[in-house]
């Protein structure tokens, strides 16, 4: 991994470059003047609080939302991404946070949706074989690929959505919280996959709330805060505390306070006389924090 990082630093071929991207929904400015660069063979993690605008940025890149302002360069060419088809045509594959699968279709049909083999006489067998290959590669625990997506668990669906992004020949893969619902083995597989994608020279954008995952695979961490760029760090030169400070916008924040001072176990839930359990109230929490 370190060698490849060095290789890249000598020849950084920026594959995707955003400048000044803004997007508002009515009165809410979800993105303001965002810049982002992704090189071939680079894993860029985008982190930020809930509502920071990460998914909105992903949707701009995948053609779901049109930006209000800003430019996008793909392979040094200025491009517009007016719809999902053009994103896919450029080679930008996305795993959406809400997965975007069709419940009434089965796993194979979802995987190949929009990219069916042999359009006029579907080649079910080739598609099924390829589906199994992809899913095994991700250690997917899916009993059958011929059952509707609706009957899969959340993590199984997420695996299907990830597998779908690998079909075709993408140049950039965007993963919006890809491991949020995954088990330990599947998370590890996804992280391995991200590393394999990097070795194959793809640009990977990964959104995650999990600092450990980010530190494990990302080359760079881009922080969004309230819809603005709030830091761009090289992994290895930055501590998790610094990233968290950038995410929350303060060094003295709830996360650092919690990790350094509060021991959760000292906050006991109250058992009421009728046997029900009352969660610790917020005053309780504050008490504990002020006690320090």
């Amino acid at each position: 991994m370190t060698t490849s990082t060095l290789d890249r630093s000598t020849a950084p071929a920026t594959i995707l470059s955003l400048r000044g991207i803004s997007k508002s929904f009515g009165a809410v400015a979800a993105l303001t003047d965002i810049s982002l660069d992704v090189a071939a063979g680079e894993v860029v993690a985008i982190v930020g609080d809930n509502g920071a605008g990460k998914s909105t940025l992903v949707k701009v890149l995948s053609g779901v939302h049109l930006p209000d302002a800003g430019t996008i360069h793909f392979n040094a060419q200025p491009v517009a991404i007016p719809n999902p088809t053009s994103a896919l045509d450029l080679g930008i594959a996305t795993v959406f946070q809400d997965l975007a699968l069709c419940d009434n279709l089965n796993v194979i049909e979802n995987l190949f949706l929009g990219r069916e083999l042999r359009p006029a006489r579907l080649n079910d067998i080739a598609m099924e074989v390829r589906s199994w290959e992809l899913l095994r590669q991700l250690s997917a625990k899916i009993p059958s690929v011929r059952i509707p997506i609706a009957s899969l668990s959340g993590g199984q669906r997420q695996t299907v959505a990830i597998a779908r992004s690998l079909l075709g020949d993408p140049k950039v893969i965007i993963l919006d919280e890809p491991t949020a619902a995954l088990g330990v083995a599947q998370t590890a597989e996804v992280l391995n996959l991200v590393e394999r994608l990097r070795e194959r020279g793809l640009g990977v954008i990964m959104i995650s709330h999990n600092m450990a995952d980010v530190q494990a695979v990302a080359d760079r961490v881009v922080v969004l805060r309230l819809g603005r760029n709030n830091g761009d760090y090289k992994v290895g030169t930055v501590t998790p505390e610094e990233i968290i400070a950038a995410i929350t916008g303060a060094t003295d924040n709830a996360v650092t306070r919690r990790t350094s001072q509060v021991d959760l176990r000292t906050i006991q839930p109250t058992v009421l006389p009728d046997g029900t359990v009352e969660p610790p109230s917020s005053e309780n929490l504050n008490d504990k924090e002020t006690e320090r």
């Binding site: 779901v64 999902p84 996305t94 997965l99 975007a100 069709c102 009434n104 279709l105 049909e109 949706l113």
Partner: peptide
Amino acid sequence: FAVGGNVEAARRAGI
């Protein structure tokens, strides 16, 4: 079938 099942998913799949 995809459009009938989930229009938005179909759209994002490039249909």
